[in-house]
Design a protein around this nucleic acid. Structure first.
Lengths: 256, 256
DNA sequence: ACGGCCTATCTTGTATACAAGATGTCGAGG
DNA sequence: CCTCGACATCTTGTATACAAGATAGGCCGT
């Protein structure tokens, strides 16, 4: 795969192609951001890997400036960590940080599901149903990258249904960060994931705010649990044995 | 006030002063970020005002590069808005966006208060008490800038008491954004604000998670209400008359 | 052989230069 | 009088150059 970024505007022999008419070309910085983010989220760049400006600039065939800005943009999103004079690396998270992110995500997803159930909108729901069907269909087939994409899409649609863009942005950034942590074993439990999606959507459809919030919260917390159990099993219990249960309890919304 | 940023390392006649020993000098970018943020939050730069790179570079006596990066960092925090080839302006928010931010903040502050009440920590509580006393004392005196600082400090301490840094970061960024909106009439209701702080802290101290969460949520929502009422009164009802009540209901955690 | 310094090299930080997009102005033509 | 368009100007986007901090390997002394 060629990594070069060109903004689609090479010097053609016959000047027939200005910048795509009506479609403003994005600054290189933004293109680089997209590429870097994609490479990080896809696992092509692994956690802890150094991101050397010069090398990336060469890879992408641009100067260091857009690369610098892209790196800092991703740092603001929490996908890369940069230390003042030592450069940037793909972010990695401790189990404590992971737990914290999961706690917050659970709360935000619960809030959003509540809003989606309250403001339910036929158009949105139809779109969500389509996404859900496709997801459940492909859950068995494999192709991790496609499943990750569909999962992100479902959550984005649900965020749109909540009609709170501030909330949606926060959820997306947090989701990307946790996905980065989960990436190594992301294929786990796709079927269960989509079963949970189905349950959330049903609660939203019937307008049961309480249930939608509870299910959305658990959806996140259980994914976190599965991950922590897996890593604890692999690493031999670096945290307490029931850390996941503690986590679940921590963010649960109080029940009536 | 001289706006120049120097990193404290001028060419002295007698080379007696390297970079302050043991204290790594921050990159200019970070210094510029701090200055810009301070100028924005203090209202020195008003919402909508253009941030021209050249002018800022001259003001701060640095090149455009650190300024560019600083602007983008603040854009990531949501304090400035940048349009691809048209430059950056100090962010401004519609009433809809403001409402959304308030909703999310209310939820996050509620979650944090719950965590602080659960994990209550004597040291933290003592520090919070000090801050509270100082705040209540100065609430009558005026000096808006000092009150804003103390308010930020109280919320930061409460965030620390919640022991979730991810959550704390999100709350701080959101608080800055809402403060930017509220800035024009921020002096309003300082006494009430600190009375609410007191109530929240009391709930945290006795470990009543439910009450702490409820009070924290209301603290944010009521501040939002006060603001929206004020602007609606000033602008002649641009949104529905009971928008603030709707907002309050929107994020309230369900009661048992 | 070991520890510490010193230099060679790599990488980031900052400045400057140039290219190209956006905006505002003024005049010609209707 | 108004509109359209070419030009002048302002501002951002990108590249390159140089300065300075960080790192690693080797050399010297003991």
């Amino acid at each position: 795969m060629s990594e070069a970024i060109t903004s689609g505007r090479e010097k053609g022999v016959l000047e027939a192609e200005g910048p795509p008419v009506g479609e403003l070309h994005a600054p290189l910085r933004d293109l680089v951001v997209d590429r870097l983010r994609a490479n990080i989220l896809s696992g092509r760049y692994k956690s802890g890997e150094r991101l050397v400006e010069d090398r990336l600039a060469e890879d992408f065939k641009v100067s260091r400036n857009p690369v610098r800005e892209a790196i800092r943009a991703l740092a603001a999103e929490g996908l890369v960590a940069v230390t003042p004079r030592r450069g940037a690396t793909v972010a990695g998270f401790s189990t404590a940080e992971t737990r914290e992110m999961i706690e917050v995500r659970a709360t935000l997803e619960a809030m959003n599901a509540r809003l989606a159930a309250r403001r339910r909108d036929p158009g949105m729901i139809a779109t969500l149903m389509n996404c859900l069907n496709e997801g459940q269909q492909r859950a068995g087939e494999g192709d991790p990258a496609e499943l990750v994409r569909l999962n992100a899409h479902f959550h984005d649609l649900l965020a749109a249904a909540g009609h709170n863009r501030i909330l949606g942005d926060l959820m997306r950034k947090l989701r990307e960060r946790t996905n980065l942590v989960f990436a190594p074993r992301s294929a786990n439990g796709a079927a269960q994931t989509w079963e949970e999606h189905r349950a959330i959507l049903e609660a939203v459809i019937v307008g049961d705010e309480e249930l939608a919030a509870l299910l959305a919260s658990r959806h996140v917390l259980q994914a976190g649990e599965r991950h922590l159990e897996a890593t604890e099993a692999a690493a031999g219990g670096e945290a307490g044995p029931m850390a996941s249960a503690v986590m679940l309890e921590a963010a649960e919304t109080p029940s009536p």
